[in-house]
Measured scan of single mutants.
Amino acid sequence: DMPHRFKVHNYMSPTFCDHCGSLLWGLVKQGLKCEDCGMNVHHKCREKVANLCGI
């Protein structure tokens, strides 16, 4: 059981939050991507995600 390793990410195409399902808005640093499993989340959704990475 490992925690997610979220890192700020710049998305080049429209991407949706894997937690709430809404679009990650903006041009740069729109959200966070787990370096291990690739989960994408809003900055505000980070604390709502279970801290178990499903690598």
Rank of each mutant, 00 (worst) to 15 (best):
11 Y>H: 04
30 Q>P: 02
20 C>D: 14
53 C>P: 14
4 H>S: 04
44 K>D: 08
24 L>D: 02
22 S>K: 11
19 H>Q: 11
12 M>A: 12
33 K>F: 14
45 C>D: 04
49 V>R: 12
29 K>G: 15
34 C>K: 01
40 N>L: 02
10 N>D: 06
26 G>T: 02
10 N>S: 07
27 L>H: 02
10 N>H: 06
27 L>S: 03
32 L>N: 13
28 V>S: 08
45 C>Q: 00
31 G>Q: 01
33 K>V: 11
26 G>I: 02
14 P>H: 04
44 K>G: 11
48 K>L: 10
44 K>W: 08
25 W>D: 10
15 T>E: 05
50 A>Y: 08
12 M>E: 04
28 V>K: 06
36 D>S: 07
53 C>R: 14
46 R>G: 08
27 L>Q: 03
48 K>Q: 14
27 L>D: 04
43 H>W: 08
39 M>Q: 11
48 K>N: 09
22 S>Y: 05
7 K>S: 14
1 D>S: 05
29 K>R: 11
27 L>V: 07
28 V>L: 10
31 G>K: 01
47 E>W: 15
38 G>P: 11
55 I>P: 05
25 W>P: 04
42 H>I: 00
10 N>W: 07
45 C>M: 00
17 C>W: 00
10 N>I: 01
13 S>I: 10
49 V>I: 11
35 E>A: 14
35 E>C: 14
19 H>Y: 09
22 S>L: 14
45 C>K: 00
55 I>Q: 03
28 V>P: 01
53 C>W: 05
51 N>E: 02
44 K>P: 13
37 C>I: 00
16 F>W: 14
34 C>D: 02
43 H>V: 08
6 F>K: 03
2 M>D: 04
31 G>S: 01
54 G>I: 13
54 G>H: 09
52 L>F: 14
26 G>F: 03
50 A>I: 09
13 S>D: 03
54 G>R: 11
29 K>L: 08
9 H>N: 12
45 C>P: 00
38 G>W: 14
15 T>I: 10
25 W>M: 06
39 M>I: 12
40 N>W: 02
39 M>F: 14
23 L>G: 05
9 H>F: 15
35 E>L: 12
42 H>Y: 01
8 V>D: 15
46 R>T: 11
31 G>T: 01
47 E>H: 07
13 S>Q: 04
53 C>L: 13
23 L>C: 06
48 K>S: 10
38 G>Q: 11
46 R>D: 13
20 C>E: 05
38 G>S: 12
39 M>H: 08
38 G>N: 12
40 N>Y: 04
19 H>N: 09
40 N>H: 09
52 L>Y: 12
23 L>N: 03
10 N>P: 03
16 F>H: 15
36 D>Y: 06
8 V>N: 08
50 A>G: 09
55 I>A: 10
1 D>C: 03
14 P>T: 06
47 E>F: 07
55 I>H: 12
18 D>H: 08
18 D>K: 12
28 V>N: 11
17 C>M: 00
24 L>H: 09
28 V>G: 06
36 D>C: 14
42 H>K: 05
38 G>C: 14
31 G>A: 06
40 N>D: 10
50 A>L: 08
16 F>C: 08
20 C>A: 01
14 P>M: 06
16 F>Y: 12
6 F>R: 02
36 D>L: 06
12 M>G: 09
50 A>W: 10
1 D>L: 02
54 G>A: 12
12 M>L: 09
42 H>W: 02
43 H>M: 08
2 M>G: 03
31 G>M: 01
17 C>K: 00
10 N>L: 03
42 H>M: 04
39 M>Y: 12
25 W>H: 03
47 E>V: 12
33 K>R: 14
11 Y>A: 04
7 K>V: 08
25 W>F: 09
54 G>K: 06
20 C>P: 00
8 V>K: 05
9 H>T: 14
51 N>Q: 08
6 F>C: 04
49 V>G: 14
7 K>W: 06
46 R>M: 10
3 P>T: 15
48 K>V: 10
31 G>W: 01
51 N>V: 04
30 Q>H: 02
26 G>C: 01
43 H>F: 07
52 L>H: 10
21 G>V: 06
20 C>G: 04
2 M>K: 05
46 R>K: 06
18 D>C: 13
43 H>D: 09
8 V>R: 07
10 N>M: 04
15 T>A: 06
10 N>K: 02
11 Y>Q: 03
44 K>H: 05
40 N>P: 04
20 C>K: 00
51 N>F: 04
44 K>Y: 13
42 H>T: 04
37 C>V: 00
51 N>M: 02
23 L>K: 01
6 F>M: 07
24 L>N: 03
30 Q>C: 02
46 R>C: 11
26 G>L: 02
16 F>V: 05
48 K>E: 10
29 K>Y: 13
4 H>L: 02
5 R>G: 15
25 W>Q: 05
6 F>D: 02
3 P>L: 15
35 E>N: 11
41 V>G: 04
24 L>C: 15
14 P>E: 04
30 Q>V: 02
37 C>H: 02
33 K>Y: 14
46 R>H: 10
11 Y>V: 03
27 L>C: 05
33 K>P: 00
37 C>Q: 00
36 D>H: 06
40 N>S: 11
40 N>G: 09
17 C>E: 00
26 G>K: 01
7 K>N: 04
21 G>P: 11
8 V>M: 14
55 I>K: 14
11 Y>W: 15
50 A>D: 13
17 C>H: 00
29 K>A: 10
18 D>W: 15
42 H>S: 07
54 G>E: 15
44 K>F: 06
42 H>G: 06
53 C>Q: 12
32 L>Y: 13
32 L>E: 12
16 F>S: 08
11 Y>S: 09
18 D>N: 13
30 Q>G: 02
51 N>H: 05
17 C>S: 00
49 V>E: 14
52 L>C: 08
48 K>R: 12
2 M>N: 14
38 G>R: 12
23 L>P: 06
54 G>C: 15
50 A>F: 11
18 D>T: 09
42 H>V: 01
29 K>I: 06
17 C>T: 00
28 V>Y: 11
40 N>K: 11
23 L>V: 06
18 D>L: 07
20 C>H: 00
36 D>A: 06
44 K>I: 06
6 F>H: 15
10 N>Y: 04
15 T>D: 05
29 K>F: 08
51 N>L: 13
32 L>C: 14
3 P>R: 15
41 V>H: 02
5 R>D: 15
54 G>V: 10
21 G>S: 14
4 H>E: 04
45 C>Y: 01
46 R>W: 09
43 H>Q: 13
26 G>A: 02
14 P>G: 05
14 P>K: 04
30 Q>Y: 02
3 P>K: 15
12 M>H: 15
34 C>H: 00
6 F>Q: 05
47 E>Y: 09
6 F>I: 12
23 L>T: 06
15 T>R: 11
8 V>S: 03
6 F>T: 13
23 L>W: 09
8 V>T: 10
38 G>L: 08
21 G>I: 08
30 Q>N: 02
18 D>V: 07
36 D>W: 05
23 L>E: 03
27 L>P: 02
43 H>T: 06
45 C>A: 01
44 K>C: 09
8 V>F: 04
27 L>T: 03
43 H>K: 10
34 C>Q: 01
23 L>Y: 06
53 C>S: 15
50 A>R: 10
35 E>R: 09
24 L>V: 08
3 P>W: 14
3 P>A: 15
18 D>A: 09
43 H>I: 06
28 V>E: 05
31 G>L: 01
8 V>A: 11
10 N>T: 10
45 C>S: 01
40 N>A: 06
52 L>D: 11
32 L>D: 11
19 H>M: 14
18 D>Y: 11
51 N>C: 06
45 C>W: 01
9 H>M: 14
15 T>Y: 07
